[in-house]
């Protein structure tokens, strides 16, 4: 169920787009209305979630310190793993977000008879994760070309870097291969590593299947079953200039691709994909470890009932006097 349900959901989504465009001729629905709706849900949902998190305060400053703290001048602080300044925190966060620093630490615990444990470096998840996310980002940037009349320089640079392994025409993009490979790896590890399989939910398979299908339809369009690119550009330009028009003859594969992307966008705010926003807010990573030097304020700090010294002395006064301890009240 945890695998089959998301699997068939993706298939149903594909069929839906196919039937809608090919049989019911709902080009305007799939080409204009759904994309607008999806992007609206994405933006509104994303903001809603982030604001939701933001509304809960951070009562305590609880960084997970992963290196030497700020100490004497003669002890070297690890400013990135245990930052005590905002600059250090920014550095730590950049490493996390751009290079998945924590995942890079990953080690694999192995058990042998004895009992004996050994810990081996295990960078596969980190590598696949990076390959997937960076490919995703670069592909996203490349797609922006459809939305500009004159393609910005930055996008050109991205494209030419991405295609430096030029194999035939059309240009072959490295990220296309990477994303397919990386997502396949991520799916496979969910099937093959027993522990990961055991913890996986439908919500873990669904985005992977969805992204895999998006990438596959994209690759199909680009290298195998050509669609009418000029038409796609026209559609995209129409969408961003808020004067949507649906050109003829783009090809159903494109609509399937677009529909799945819309589903991904609309699904995003309600799912674990929100880790994209969440990673920036994580209190164990985005706070400086300067607690002892700068007081952190808890907005809901409230007075509590304590057992005061006076009460304590009342309980033990005679014993204290006998033991020669000073007391406040004789």
């Amino acid at each position: 169920m945890r695998v089959l349900f998301p699997f068939f959901t993706v298939i149903v989504l594909v069929l839906l787009a196919f039937a809608g465009v090919k049989m019911a001729n709902l080009h305007f629905l799939f080409g204009v209305i759904i994309p607008y709706a999806a992007i609206t849900v994405f933006i509104a949902g994303f903001i809603y979630r982030v604001v939701g998190w933001g509304r809960s305060p951070v009562p305590f400053r609880i960084p997970t310190t992963c290196g030497q703290m700020e100490s004497f001048p003669w002890i070297k602080q690890n400013k990135l793993e245990n930052p005590s300044t905002t600059l250090g925190v920014i550095g730590r966060m950049l490493l996390e977000v751009l290079f998945f620093r924590s995942l890079f630490r990953n080690i694999k615990t192995e058990f042998r008879e004895g009992p004996k444990f050994s810990y081996g470096s295990d960078k596969w998840l980190w590598m696949a994760g990076l390959a997937f996310h960076w490919s995703f980002l670069i592909i996203l940037i490349r797609h922006l070309r459809f939305f500009f009349l004159k393609v910005p320089y930055l996008i050109h640079v991205t494209e030419s870097l991405d295609s430096f392994l030029q194999i035939g025409a059309p240009l072959f993009y490295i990220t296309d291969a990477l994303i397919l490979g990386a997502v396949t790896f991520l799916v496979l590890r969910r099937f093959l590593i027993p522990q990961v399989k055991y913890i996986s939910l439908a919500a873990d398979y669904f985005p992977l299947f969805l992204i895999l299908t998006i990438a596959a339809t994209g690759v199909l369009m680009r290298y195998f079953s050509k669609v009418h690119i000029v038409g796609v550009k026209e559609l995209a330009m129409g969408l961003v200039s808020f004067s949507p028009a649906v050109p003829e003859g783009i090809g159903v594969l494109f609509y399937i691709h677009l529909f799945l992307v819309c589903v991904l966008f609309a699904y995003f705010p309600f799912s674990k994909l929100m880790h994209m926003g969440g990673v920036f807010l994580s209190p164990t990573r985005n706070l400086a470890n300067n607690n002892r030097a700068v007081r952190h304020i808890n907005p809901w700090n409230y007075p509590v009932h304590v057992h005061t010294y006076e009460e304590y002395e009342d309980d033990f006064r005679e014993k204290m006097k006998k033991a020669g301890l000073p007391v406040e009240k004789e």
């Binding site: 809960s56 995942l103 990953n106 998840l125 994760g129 990961v196 873990d204 929100m274 990673v279 994580s282």
Partner: peptide, 29 residues
């Protein structure tokens, strides 16, 4: 507590179940 602790709320929401933490706990090991 969800309204008082961002940590709690966030940690309820954003885990991707990648399993990187799985074999790091001494009790699991």
């Amino acid at each position: 507590r969800l309204s008082k602790y961002r940590s709690f709320k966030l940690f309820m929401d954003i885990c991707v179940r990648c399993g990187a933490c799985a074999d790091k706990c001494h009790f699991y090991i």
